[in-house]
Structures are given as C-alpha cells and as structure tokens.
C-alpha cells in the first residue's frame, strides 16, 4: 500500500512537472501582457493582416494538400505492397529534417528558375515571396500530421465493416464514402487540425521562401530582433489566443467516436 502511495506520488509529480512545463511559459506570456498592450496590438493593422494571412495560408495548405493526402492514407492503412515501409518513412521525412533546410530544398523546386516556378509564373502564381510559396512551405512541413492521423484512423476501421458493405452490393467508392471515411472522420479531422495548427507555427521553411508577405511567426521574430521582447510579446500573445480558440473549437466540433459492437 505504502509502495502504491509512493508510486502514485512520483507519477503525480512527474505529470505535474510536464504539464507545468507546457502551460507555464504560455500562461506567463499571456499574463505578462497588459490589457493596454492587447488593445494596442489588436488595432495594429500589420499584426491583424499578418494573423489573417497566416490563418489563410495554413488553411489553404490544409485544404489542398491535406485532402489530397486522404486517399494515400487510406491505401497505406488498407493495402500491402512492396516498398510500403519506405513510403511510410518518406512521409515522416519533413518532421525529422531542419525546417530551414526544408525551405532550401523547396526553393530548389519552386524558385523562378525551375519548371514548376516558371509554370507558376505563367499561371500568375508567384511562389517565391508570394502566398503560394507560404502555402507550399507550410504544407511540406505539416503534411505528416494529416497523413499519419488519417492512416491510423482508417486502420482502426474494422475491415469487416467494409466487407459487409461490399457484400450488400455497395461499390468500393460508396463503401469508402459511406463507411470508411465517416468512421475514420474523427482521426482525419484531427489530423487536418494538427496539420493546420503546425502550419500556423511554421517559421524556418517559410522565411526562406517568403519573408514577405509576412506571416505572424516571422513578424514576431522581426519585432523581437528589431525592437525587443516587449514589442514581440503582445503579438505572440494575440497569436497564441487566436490559435488556441480555433484549435479548441475544431477539436470539439470534430465529432464523436463510434464503437463497433462485438
């Protein structure tokens, strides 16, 4: 019993320390920003347009690339094929490489000298120094979150349900949209939310591709290096509050879990 108490105390201490480690810096940042600083920053057009651009670019990256990745996630969950392990590894590459290096790598593909860059220019889309470049950079570093969550979600859908639907005469497309996707919905949405959230916070890859127009993480960095902590902190506080509000709302709205009876 004594042993159990000691174990419990250790667990509580460790868990409390970890939670405090996450919460304390954010709470400190939010609490040390005065109401007057909040009021001034909210009226700062540069800050507001920067937050708007960041939200928009990350959302764009999530909608375009996240949704495109859903079929790949399904195939990875359901099919076995040669080099599947390699593909799973490739998907995680953006997470493990330095993001500034990712920006340099992307630049090699989308800069004006490349055929992708030239095709973009011809279509009126400028990657380097443009919103499209920000979208690509955010997507590159955040895609693993969407694909991995969706793949795990599809893998958790009992294959038997899909087989039952096929046996009832449904086409594979109908099975996907009426059974697999609705049952994996929570994981897919959760992955998309994580992708979007990760895109919002991206700094390293974006700064290489597009310093301007300025997304909020770059704006915070610029104010910090140019004017100091007291100028950067209110922008960071506002940005964190906006992100948290949207993040919590989307998690709540992402739907309920269904339990398959056995």
């Amino acid at each position: 019993m004594l042993k159990d108490w000691r174990t419990q105390l250790v667990i509580i201490f460790f868990s409390g320390f970890i939670l405090l480690f996450i919460v304390a810096p954010i709470a400190g940042l939010l609490l040390r920003t005065s109401p007057a600083e909040y009021a001034t920053t909210i009226q700062d057009r540069e800050v507001i347009s920067s937050i708007g651009l960041t939200l928009f670019a990350s959302m764009g990256a999530t909608i375009i690339f996240g949704i495109l990745s859903v079929p790949l996630a399904y195939i990875l969950a359901r099919k076995n094929f040669p080099l599947k392990g390699l593909i799973n590894g490739i998907i995680d590459v953006p997470v493990v490489i330095p993001h500034s290096a990712a920006g340099i790598a992307l630049l090699g593909v989308i800069s004006r000298g490349t055929w992708v860059g030239q095709a973009g220019e011809a279509a009126g889309i400028s990657f380097v120094g443009g919103v499209a470049g920000i979208v690509v950079a955010m997507a590159f570093v955040s895609l693993p979150f969407a694909i991995n969550a969706a793949r795990d979600g599809f893998a958790a859908v009992p294959e038997k349900l899909e087989k039952a639907a096929l046996n009832l005469g449904a086409s594979p497309q109908r099975v996907f949209f009426s059974i697999s996707l609705p049952l994996a919905k929570r994981s897919v949405i959760s992955g998309l939310v994580m992708m979007w959230a990760r895109g919002l916070s991206e700094f390293g890859a974006v700064i290489i591709i597009a310093y301007h127009p300025m997304i909020t993480p770059i704006l915070i960095w610029e104010r910090f290096t140019s004017f100091g902590l007291s100028y950067a902190r209110p922008v960071a506080a506002i940005f964190i509050l906006v992100c948290l509000a949207i993040f919590i709302t989307m998690r709540v709205l992402s739907g309920k879990r269904y339990h398959v009876r056995n």
Partner: peptide, 9 residues
C-alpha cells in the same frame, strides 16, 4: 458475420 458488423454510425 458472427459479430454482426453493423455500421456503428
């Protein structure tokens, strides 16, 4: 199926 495989949603 033995475990029915009803669509839970």
């Amino acid at each position: 199926y033995q475990d029915m495989a009803l669509f839970p949603h």
